[in-house]
């Protein structure tokens, strides 16, 4: 072997090929992780069990009680899916930085944009796989019990869950770009999860009662929470029942009517795009030391 003198010309712009190489590696790492499969097993197992328990045996009755099953599935997604996305995202950058993997990656002719979106895409593919596994298990049970009559609504919830998990991944990665230690990133991610899932629901209701918050403000604050936005979007797609949607949801149905779902999907879309874009902007900044 002799010293080379004329390496291949390398463009400075981000290249899709490099992003895919990084993404494949991230996906393979996630799929090889025991933690990932524990998440998948827990989600799929709980989703299938919920579907089994909530749907009665008869096909006619089962079709009618699909709303109850769907509401249970949505409640499950609200708790598990954000935690999956947030924790995986929070570890993404911080862990690689802590262990030196980022330095190894960026010592190659790879720019930060390629590294970031490669990591994001790989993790996104893993998380969507996990959500698909969960909904696949529940969908199988539901299809057998209901004869597949509510496939559209079921798929709608699954797509909503996929968008929610990607939004959470973006938030987690944003946290990850601000923290140098994995443990700190995970701690912040769990805190955000608690805030979105529990404080955003029970805390908001308590505050609304205590401060006599107008229902329009309550709706705005509810929709600003991506987990609640997912819940409203998912449930509004198959029911307008007051007890399922809660006061803010009922107000939204009355005020927005048919525009409710597009509005909420738009909000979810913003959560899907903005945190990931903010994380990318921070990560790619040359002022960010790695």
């Amino acid at each position: 072997m002799t010293a080379a003198t004329s390496p291949v010309a390398i463009p400075e712009r981000a290249e899709g090929r490099t992003i895919l190489v990084v993404a494949r590696k991230e996906l393979a790492d996630a799929l090889a992780s025991r933690w990932f499969w524990m998440w998948v097993a827990a989600f799929a197992g709980l989703a299938a069990t919920l579907a089994l328990v909530a749907l009665p045996g008869s096909r006619v009755a089962a079709s009618a009680s699909f709303s109850r099953t769907a509401a249970s599935l949505v409640a499950l997604v609200q708790v598990i899916v954000p935690l999956m996305g947030l924790t995986l995202g929070a570890q993404a950058i911080a862990s690689q930085r802590e262990h030196g993997a980022l330095r190894f990656l960026l010592s190659h002719p790879v720019n930060r944009t390629e590294a970031f979106w490669g990591i994001y895409l790989g993790l996104a593919a893993a998380l969507v796989t996990a959500v698909a596994a969960g909904f696949g298990a529940a969908g199988l049970v539901t299809a057998i019990r209901t004869g597949g009559t509510r496939t559209g609504a079921f798929l709608w919830i699954a797509v909503g869950a996929a968008i929610l998990v990607l939004a959470m991944l973006g938030i987690g990665m944003l946290v990850s770009t601000f923290t140098r230690r994995t443990s700190s990133a995970l701690g912040i991610a769990v805190f955000i999860w608690l805030g979105l899932v529990f404080l955003g629901d029970l805390g908001l209701m308590g505050t609304a009662v205590a401060t006599r918050m107008p229902v329009s403000a309550l709706f705005a604050v509810t929709v600003a929470n991506p987990v609640e936005a997912f819940r409203l979007a998912a449930l509004a797609s198959f029911t307008r029942s007051l007890d399922v949607l809660g006061p803010a949801g009922t107000y939204a149905v009355n005020v927005l009517g048919d525009a409710l779902v597009p509005v909420i999907v738009g909000v979810l879309g913003l959560w899907f795009v903005l945190p990931a874009a903010a994380a990318w902007a921070r990560f790619r900044s040359p002022r960010q030391d790695l």
Binding site: E12, Q96, S107, P109, P286
Partner: peptide, 24 residues
């Protein structure tokens, strides 16, 4: 190195103190 980072790194082989981060 600041504006042509990728091209610069294509000319460099880097060996760190220990390749400890890809243990699996």
């Amino acid at each position: 190195a600041r504006t042509r980072g990728k091209a610069v790194r294509s000319r460099i082989g880097y060996v760190a103190q220990e390749l400890a981060f890809y243990d699996d």
